Simulated scan of single mutants.
Amino acid sequence: MRKLAIGGIVIILVVIGAFAASDNVLTNNNDTTMVITYGETTYNNQQYKSIVDDYFSQNANVILENVTTEVITANEVNQISQGISNKTYDSNQIFSSALVDLNGTGNLTVNVDTSKITLVTEEMYASALNSTGINQGYVVVTSPISATGESALAGIMSCYEEATNKHIPDEVKKAANDEIYAQSEVVNSSNASPHQISGLVSEVKEEVAQNNTTDIGAIADAVEQTASNNGIELSQADIDKLAEAILQTQSVKDQANDYKNQVTNVINNGGNGFNIFNIFNF
């Protein structure tokens, strides 16, 4: 069984208002609204803060002097993490970060700094966000030190909620959270890589959606067959865990589609209802 350290799975949300869709680079234009939220551990450690600052300066084309900053505490993070890993974090465990651009009108793009984020893949984030109906925007996830990145999903969803003034239904949010957590647990309990598990889940979700099934037995069979086809060895417990997570996302697809339509309308109407400086009240 492979053990992956949780190591400070918390959120520094970065919201940048302009997205260069042609090459997925965020630019610092005059009309751009920028916010960086630092986890308190990173903010209080100059070395960690410099690592994060340098990463976004180099990879997101951010001029830090023009960015408004906020700090998120362990107490705020624990309100999020309880819904995913059921873990409680101390004030010295707040590290991982997510950059979110809500103004991009293209497809959802997720970039993960794999040198720091050890578990949750780009595909995992994209799959879970799509399960909520989020299919637009630009997301970057990083951390000053190694972290799994599990809790970042909840923070990203909160960012979409507050910025669009549209609440993701609780059942939809729970399904997306559980999808990330189920995949992380299966990675920890099997010999499969995160990319293998995220690819498997995406493939099965597509098959389940095409067949429009909510039969847990049929979904479990699809997980088992897809794993076999891809040379992935899973225990029955792992198969059942993934099947249950996929069933949840399939069961709330109508609510997710409704949320997607609401977000699309907000974005297409020029961001009506956006209040970028209030998005971190979670």
Rank of each mutant, 00 (worst) to 15 (best):
Y43H: 08
V120S: 03
A152Q: 07
N59V: 04
N66T: 11
D238C: 09
L99H: 02
D240W: 02
N212Y: 00
F19I: 09
A18K: 15
I219C: 10
G106S: 11
T164M: 08
A60N: 07
F280S: 11
Y259F: 15
L26G: 05
A147H: 05
N191F: 12
E203S: 14
A220S: 13
K173D: 00
Q183A: 10
N177C: 04
S184T: 15
L234D: 02
I94T: 00
T148S: 11
C159E: 08
A74R: 04
F282W: 13
I239M: 02
M34G: 05
A209N: 01
T164D: 08
Q183F: 02
M34N: 12
D54E: 15
D238N: 15
A175R: 01
N66P: 01
Q183V: 05
I219A: 09
N212D: 07
V201L: 09
Q210F: 02
G217P: 06
T32M: 06
V14K: 01
V14F: 08
N135R: 08
E123L: 00
V187P: 07
L26I: 10
L234Y: 03
Q136T: 01
V14Q: 00
F95I: 13
N130A: 14
T213G: 00
G155E: 06
S228E: 14
N29C: 07
K116R: 05
S97D: 09
E206M: 03
R2G: 13
G271F: 06
D254S: 01
E162W: 00
P169Y: 09
Q58L: 11
A182Q: 02
N28P: 09
V35N: 06
E70Y: 13
V35Q: 03
M124H: 02
V186A: 08
I216S: 01
V10F: 15
I6C: 09
C159T: 15
G231M: 04
T73D: 09
N103R: 06
R2S: 14
V266Q: 04
M157N: 00
Y38R: 01
Y125W: 12
A20K: 13
T27N: 03
D53W: 02
G39P: 03
S127L: 15
N211L: 12
V172F: 05
Q82T: 10
N111S: 02
A222K: 03
A182S: 14
M157C: 04
E162V: 05
S193A: 11
I51M: 10
E76I: 04
T41R: 11
N275K: 12
D101A: 15
I80Q: 09
A20V: 13
A18P: 07
K253I: 09
S50D: 00
Q255P: 01
N191I: 07
S184L: 00
I180L: 09
S190T: 10
P169M: 10
N188H: 04
T33Q: 13
N75R: 07
